[in-house]
Design a protein around this nucleic acid. Structure first.
Lengths: 210, 210
DNA sequence: TGTAATATCACATCATGATGTGATTGTGCG
DNA sequence: CGCACAATCACATCATGATGTGATATTACA
C-alpha cells in the first residue's frame, strides 16, 4: 500500500501533539502539514511539494471556522477528502459540514486507531462516521415519529399537489372538485399547521414536519 | 453486557446457515428468530416470548421486498432497530431503506465480525454503515459540482428570502429596496431558471438545483 | 340518535404574485 | 470609450392566493 499523505488543521496544542506523535509512528500515513487555522493551512500548502490527500479538520478554530473553511480547502485541493474531527455533534454542524463537502465526520472521542482506520477507509473511496453521528444522519432520513395526524388524507393529497407546484385551478382539475373546495381545504390546512402561505407549507413539507 | 436478541430475515439458505452458525457461537448475541420472508417473520414473532431487539434484513426476498417490509416490521416491533444486509448498493435502495426507518445498512460483503460489531453499535444507540455505503450517503449531501452561476449574488439573496417564506413586501423591507425592485429580480430569476411560480422556485432550492 | 369530523361547494373581498414595458445608475472589461 | 450586465425603480394589468362567512351531505362513533 502506498503512503497516504495527511494534513491536519487543529488548534488544540495537546491534540496536535498526540496526533503528530501517533502518525509519525505509522508507516502508512505521512502527515505533511499541521496548522492551527484554515488561513495558515492555505498559505502553507503553497510551499509544499507533496500535497495532502486527506485533511483532518476541526470546527472550533481561531479565525475561520472549519465548516466555513471546507469550500476554500476544496478549492485549493479539489482532490482532497476532508474528515471532520470535532467535539461538535449537533445535527446542524454535521449537516453543514457534509453539505459543504466533508466526506467523513468523527467525534473527538474517537480512538487514534479508529481515526487511522477512517483515514484508510476514506482513502479507498469509502467513508466512516462515528456511530453516534451515523445515527443522527440516518435519523434525518427516517420519518418523524410525529407522523402527526394534523392533516386528513384528503388534505395530504392537496398538500402533495401544492408542493408539486400546482395552482389551485390545476388541483381542482386533478382532484375533480371545485376551486372553492380546494380553497377551503387549504384554509383548513393552514389553520391546522398554523401557517399562512404556500411558501411555509412547502417548507414544512420538505422538512418533513407534517 | 446483557444479551442482544436478534431476528434475521434472509432467503438465501447458505447465508442463513453461516449467520446462524456464527451467532450461535457468540455469547453476546442470541438469534431468536430466522425467517425467509417478511410475511413468515411477522406471523412467527407472535409466538415468541422474547422479541428481537435488532433485525437483520435482506432486500431481495420471496414475497414482499425487505424495504416494503420495514414499516410493517416497525409497526409490530416499534422498539426494534433494523439493519439492512444486502447486495444492493444503489442510491435508491439505500435512500428508500433509510427513509422507511432502517437505521443501518451493510453490504453483504461485510465480514461476520463487522456485522457483529454493527449489531453492538446499533444496540448502543449508534449506527454503522459499510464504507462504500456511507460514502454514497455523504455524497447525497454534498454540493452539486454545477454550482451553477445561473443567479447573481443579489438574486440568491432574494431566493433565500422567498424560500424562507417571506412576501415581496417583507423582502423589500429586509433588503431596503422597493417592491418593484423585488418584482424585477424575481422576474429575472424566473427567466433564468425557466420557471414561473414561487412553488417551483422553492422546490428547486430544496432540491439543490440552483 | 345525535354530534363531531370530513369533504364538498358558493360568494365576496382584499392582498399578493406574475408579467410586460420602460428607464436610470454604476461597475467592469476589452 | 462603449458595451454588457447587475441592480435599482415605476406603472399597469391580470391571475392567483388568502380569508371570512355560510351551507350541505356523508361517515363514524359514542
Amino acid at each position: 500500500m502506498s503512503t497516504i499523505t495527511l494534513g491536519i488543521i487543529e488548534d488544540d496544542q495537546l491534540v496536535q501533539e498526540s496526533l503528530n506523535e501517533f502518525f509519525n509512528a505509522q508507516a502508512e500515513i505521512d502527515c505533511v502539514l499541521m496548522s492551527s487555522s484554515v488561513e495558515d493551512f492555505l498559505t502553507s500548502i503553497k510551499s509544499l511539494e507533496t500535497l495532502p490527500e486527506i485533511i483532518l479538520l476541526d470546527i472550533n478554530l481561531l479565525g475561520m471556522s472549519g465548516i466555513d473553511g471546507i469550500p476554500l480547502l476544496l478549492n485549493e485541493l479539489p482532490k482532497a477528502d476532508i474528515i471532520m474531527l470535532t467535539t461538535f455533534e449537533d445535527n446542524d454542524s454535521i449537516y453543514k459540514a457534509l453539505c459543504a463537502g466533508a466526506c467523513s465526520y468523527l467525534s473527538k472521542k474517537t480512538s487514534l486507531k479508529k481515526i487511522k482506520e477512517a483515514i484508510e477507509v476514506v482513502h479507498k473511496g469509502g467513508s466512516y462516521m462515528s456511530p453516534s453521528i451515523a445515527r443522527k444522519i440516518v435519523n434525518s432520513f427516517a420519518p418523524k415519529k410525529n407522523q402527526s395526524n394534523l392533516l386528513t388524507p384528503r388534505q395530504k393529497e392537496i398538500v402533495a399537489e401544492i408542493v408539486d407546484g400546482k395552482s389551485y385551478k390545476m388541483i381542482a382539475n386533478d382532484l375533480f372538485v371545485s376551486i372553492d373546495t380546494v380553497r377551503t381545504h387549504i384554509k383548513n390546512i393552514y389553520k391546522a399547521l398554523e401557517i399562512n402561505s404556500k411558501a411555509e407549507l412547502i417548507k414544512k413539507s420538505y422538512d418533513n414536519e407534517l
